[in-house]
Design a protein around this nucleic acid. Sequence first.
DNA 1: GTATCTGCAAAATCTTTGCACGATA
DNA 2: TATCGTGCAAAGATTTTGCAGATAC
Lengths: 141, 141
Amino acid sequence: MADSTIIQRCEAKGLRMTDQRRIVARVIGAADDHPDVEELYARASAVDPKISLATVYRTVKLFEEAGILERLEFGDGRARYEDAERDHHDHLIDVTTGQVIEFIDQEIEDLQEKIAARLGYKLIGHRLELLAVPVAKPSKT
Amino acid sequence: MADSTIIQRCEAKGLRMTDQRRIVARVIGAADDHPDVEELYARASAVDPKISLATVYRTVKLFEEAGILERLEFGDGRARYEDAERDHHDHLIDVTTGQVIEFIDQEIEDLQEKIAARLGYKLIGHRLELLAVPVAKPSKT
DNA sequence: GTATCTGCAAAATCTTTGCACGATA
DNA sequence: TATCGTGCAAAGATTTTGCAGATAC
């Protein structure tokens, strides 16, 4: 399932697929960053200049409610989106550059389940962002 | 320092203290939840009906930039604030009720440092929210 | 063919800001 | 008293929505 495309998952869920939705789906599927809606709109406009910002908003909301996309918030007041079926990962934000690094750590995942259980809850999701600064100088020119 | 009031910390930082800022400081200091700005404005208005929403916004931003308050985002599009000097903790959100439970787990804190270090970073902060559902029925009527 | 989607523009929501007046140190 | 803060209303930024025409199934 991790190798199914967003479009395939939309069809599997019975969503009506329009040209605009396919474009948004492909744009997000091709992204390896965390675009906000304005950025998705820009990338979608490159494919179809007639697409509207409202449609992009409606589409990401639809996909999110269908569990196809995940909405992220990095604290700058704009929602960002990524493919929910990509392997789960968390984010480390380099506060000196704004760069976002993805990581996964099974120990943290397990620990979170344990903490929720201790509080009488069953974990269904989480948001984890580490804010950090580089230890060594980045390998910049 | 954890037992100093917000007002004391403002004075220590040389912030000019007005009646309005004192009111906002006391309202947040007295809160044991995570009020958004509109809610802070309501609570402050109960003390001084002439205070303006703009002043509350300016004050929480000022306090946040001074490191006195922490800005939280729970994904509903509104910023929330809490006293940054309260003992550090993370949040578990009961998605069935929206209730927010605070917790602290040293293992998770240590693990986060380790992960950042492994990626070549020094951790300076983090955001962690667990989304969960109750295991047993809540003790409701 | 009918229900749903799109584009546009207006509106809703949250937050910031210019300006004249008022308060702080 | 000089500087900085406040209140108000207007403006900004992001997101949502009403409506008429267009499209998917």
